[in-house]
Every structure is written in structure tokens, then in C-alpha cells.
Design a binder for these strands. Structure first.
Lengths: 168, 168
DNA sequence: CAATATACTTGCATACTGCAATTATCTATG
DNA sequence: CATAGATAATTGCAGTATGCAAGTATATTG
């Protein structure tokens, strides 16, 4: 009654499984960044992402923001609320359609963004410094392909992945 | 008093920033997988990661598990608790040192793992199918480098990244 | 101008996390 | 061999995040 469990039919080694490897790098890099903007500005992850979006596209509405940084409407609303509380953003009713609130970055929001962006760029630079020029180029195109395919995988939910005959 | 915010000193475009791109792919791929094992087995993300570790290394103790899947001791303890409740794992005191509880996968845990692993492998296969052989090879070595560098970035906390002169 | 649709927002129940304090066990020392 | 101190893991609790139903404000349509 204590025999070892049967051998694996399908071996999946976590440390060699592509999604886990991507996750690991992302998580290890996100932790110090979150520590920085969290302790320095009291910003959450959603808050930072939204700040980055409105820094680039000032006056965006909540839907656009959500699309740009992969957040659902609830998270966007709360993140904007946080930015407004911190004085990093202001909401103003849209000019033509007042259901869409245009979110604008403030001067101090811009300052915070610049400091966080510098920190983030430094991290990115450290990562890229380990790669050859050829690897950097390949990584870029590879990531574009993975982004597109993972987006396809994500939409449609997990049930659509069970009865599969790899869609082209 | 309503002039547009000053132009960016340091432009960081979220969608082109390496850490975000990695995060995005990881998140888009993790969502359907989490949906699958969550709804099918009532497993949390930590539970799945731990299950994958003990499937590969049966009888590991909590510290080893934590190291293998980047979870802190609290999360490991709770995750094991969940697996035990679900009947996917058993805890047994270590043979020599009874402070170390050896965690073993059960037959039904193995079954669950195999099904989740098949699902995970299918996702990985879909991602890899989009890449050329050369890209797959380059991605592998690139990820090894990024894993190593991100681990270095992570240890030491964010403060060590401020006063930087990129350590070799 | 009611009825429906859209774009958010809020409230609340649940789940997750971080950390202090505990438990159980082992090691070292007088 | 008793006792003090380390170590591995667990538990309790407080704060926080998240998911979703319901609500508010605005616009559009018949």
C-alpha cells in the first residue's frame, strides 16, 4: 500500500516549460520594480501600468487604457482612482461623449513616470546587455510571434483548447 | 493652468518594454491554463506549481519545493495543504530528520498532473509552432541568460539598482 | 420620450499575501 | 542528559487585491 506512484505518462519539467520560464523572468524583474514604485510613490502594479499608458497617450479613456495594458474595466477604474488620489492624473468628462472620461497625466504624474521609466529602462538595459546583437533582434521578432499566438490562445477560453487540431 | 503636461524626458513605451512583453505572453498563456486546472481540480497556481515539482521529484521537502518553483515557505505550506485536501499529495515526516516533511504525490495527484501537463504541453506546442527551428534554439539560450540576469536583479532588492554602474 | 445600450463605478463577498507568533524537532554545550 | 538555541514548517490575523452583481450617468433608438 505504499508503492511509489506510477511513472509519468507526460513529462513536463517546470523549469524547461516555456510559459514558466517566461513567467519566471517577468516575475523576477517585476519584483524590484514594484518595490521601487510601491515604496516610493505608493503605486500599485495597475497604477503603474496606467500611468505608463497615459504618459504615452494623454487623455485616453478607460477602455483604451484597458486595451493598452491588459487590465479589465474594474482594475482600470480603481487604478485611475489611485492615480487621481496621488495627484498623478485627472479625470475630465469627454468633450463629445461625456460617458468617456478622458484621463490626463499631471505634472507630478509625469515626474513620477519619468523616474519609474528610468528605473525600468535600467533593468531592461541590464537584461539586454547579456545578449548579443543577433539575440536581441531574434528575441524581438520571436516575442512578436509569441504575443500574437498567446493572444489567440487567451481569447476563447480554455475549453477551446481541449478539442484541438492545432488551428493554423 | 491647463497646459499640456511637459514632454517625456525618458520615453518608455510599455508595449515595447521587454519586461512587459515577457509578462504579457506569460499572463495570456497562464490564464487559460489556470482556468483549466482551477475549474477542473480546484487547484490554485501555487498548488499546480508544487504538484509539478513533486511529480518530477517525489518526496521533496518544503524548502526544496520552494526553491524549485519560486514560492516562499508560507505559500508552499498552504499549497501543500491544498494538495493534501484534494488528495493529490501526502505529507510524511522525513526519515532521518522529522522536521522535514517529505511530500509525495498520490496516484490521483499523478493523474491530475498528467492531464494538466498535457494541456500545458499543448499550449507550449502552439507557441513553438509559430517559431522557426533557429528561433527556438536562440530563444532557449536567450532565456537562460535572461533567467540568470533577472535572478541577479531580483536578489539584493531595488535599492541596489539605484546607485548603479552596471555590474559585470 | 420611454426603452435600451454603453461606459464606467461602487459595494461586497471571497481569496490571496505578508508577517508575527507557534509548534515540533534537531544540535550543541556544560 | 537537561537545557539553550537553531531550524523547518505551520497557523493566525490583518491588510489588500479580485471578481462580479448592482448602480449611476450618459447617449442612442424607435
Amino acid at each position: 500500500m505504499r508503492q511509489p506512484a506510477p511513472a509519468p505518462d507526460d513529462d513536463l519539467k517546470l523549469s524547461a516549460w516555456l510559459p514558466y520560464r517566461l513567467f519566471l523572468v517577468a516575475a523576477q524583474v517585476a519584483r524590484p520594480l514594484e518595490g521601487f514604485y510601491g515604496e516610493t510613490f505608493g503605486l500599485s502594479q495597475a497604477g503603474w501600468r496606467i500611468l505608463a499608458v497615459i504618459a504615452e497617450r494623454d487623455g485616453a479613456n478607460a477602455s483604451e487604457i484597458g486595451r493598452a495594458c491588459a487590465l479589465d474595466p474594474f482594475a482600470v477604474s480603481r487604478g485611475i482612482g489611485q492615480l487621481v488620489e496621488l495627484g498623478f492624473a485627472v479625470r475630465r468628462p469627454g468633450k463629445t461623449d461625456r460617458r468617456f472620461a478622458a484621463v490626463s497625466i499631471t505634472r507630478s504624474g509625469r515626474n513620477a513616470f519619468n523616474r519609474i521609466a528610468a528605473f525600468g529602462s535600467a533593468i531592461e538595459a541590464r537584461l539586454l546587455a547579456r545578449l548579443s546583437e543577433a539575440e536581441r533582434v531574434t528575441l524581438d521578432s520571436t516575442l512578436h510571434k509569441l504575443e500574437a499566438e498567446s493572444a489567440r490562445i487567451d481569447t476563447g477560453g480554455w475549453r477551446s483548447l481541449l478539442d484541438n487540431t492545432a488551428a493554423s
